[in-house]
Lab assay of single mutants.
Amino acid sequence: DEFHFHWNGRDIRVRGDSEELRRLIEAIKRGELSEEEIERAIEILER
Rank of each mutant, 00 (worst) to 15 (best):
36 E>N: 10
46 E>P: 03
28 I>E: 01
6 H>G: 01
6 H>E: 04
32 E>T: 13
25 I>K: 03
44 I>D: 09
39 E>C: 04
22 R>M: 12
29 K>T: 10
9 G>L: 00
47 R>K: 11
34 S>N: 11
10 R>A: 02
16 G>F: 05
22 R>H: 07
46 E>C: 05
40 R>T: 08
30 R>L: 10
45 L>C: 01
19 E>S: 12
41 A>K: 07
28 I>N: 01
23 R>W: 12
15 R>Q: 11
20 E>T: 13
46 E>Q: 09
3 F>Q: 02
9 G>C: 08
23 R>P: 05
19 E>W: 15
35 E>Q: 11
37 E>Y: 05
23 R>N: 08
3 F>K: 02
37 E>W: 05
18 S>D: 07
46 E>W: 08
15 R>S: 12
16 G>Y: 06
25 I>E: 03
27 A>D: 08
19 E>T: 13
3 F>L: 06
31 G>M: 06
40 R>W: 12
2 E>V: 10
34 S>P: 06
25 I>R: 03
11 D>N: 11
41 A>E: 05
22 R>S: 06
35 E>G: 12
6 H>W: 08
10 R>S: 02
15 R>L: 10
30 R>H: 10
33 L>H: 04
11 D>Q: 13
18 S>P: 07
7 W>Y: 06
27 A>E: 07
26 E>P: 01
18 S>Y: 06
22 R>E: 04
44 I>M: 11
8 N>Q: 09
17 D>P: 11
8 N>G: 05
27 A>V: 07
41 A>Q: 09
23 R>F: 12
19 E>C: 05
29 K>G: 09
39 E>G: 10
29 K>A: 08
8 N>W: 01
24 L>K: 01
46 E>M: 14
28 I>L: 09
39 E>L: 10
27 A>T: 11
13 R>M: 14
24 L>I: 09
30 R>Q: 11
19 E>I: 14
31 G>L: 05
45 L>E: 01
8 N>E: 03
13 R>P: 07
1 D>G: 11
24 L>D: 00
17 D>M: 06
19 E>D: 09
42 I>V: 09
3 F>W: 13
6 H>R: 06
37 E>G: 09
9 G>M: 01
23 R>H: 08
33 L>F: 09
2 E>T: 07
27 A>S: 11
8 N>T: 00
22 R>V: 09
3 F>V: 04
30 R>S: 15
17 D>Q: 06
12 I>M: 03
35 E>P: 13
37 E>N: 05
42 I>A: 02
16 G>A: 10
7 W>H: 02
25 I>T: 05
17 D>R: 05
30 R>V: 06
7 W>F: 05
39 E>H: 08
26 E>V: 13
38 I>P: 00
2 E>C: 08
16 G>E: 07
4 H>A: 04
11 D>G: 04
42 I>D: 00
30 R>I: 07
43 E>A: 13
16 G>K: 05
21 L>W: 14
47 R>V: 11
39 E>A: 07
31 G>P: 02
42 I>P: 00
46 E>Y: 09
11 D>T: 15
12 I>L: 04
39 E>Q: 07
36 E>Y: 14
29 K>P: 01
34 S>V: 06
45 L>T: 02
44 I>P: 02
45 L>R: 01
43 E>P: 05
28 I>M: 07
39 E>D: 11
5 F>T: 00
15 R>N: 14
47 R>P: 08
2 E>K: 03
12 I>Y: 15
38 I>D: 00
47 R>E: 12
37 E>S: 06
38 I>Q: 03
17 D>W: 11
20 E>A: 13
4 H>C: 08
22 R>D: 03
2 E>Q: 05
40 R>H: 11
3 F>D: 04
41 A>R: 10
39 E>I: 07
43 E>T: 08
29 K>S: 09
7 W>G: 00
6 H>D: 01
26 E>D: 11
31 G>Y: 10
43 E>F: 06
28 I>K: 01
16 G>I: 08
15 R>C: 02
46 E>S: 07
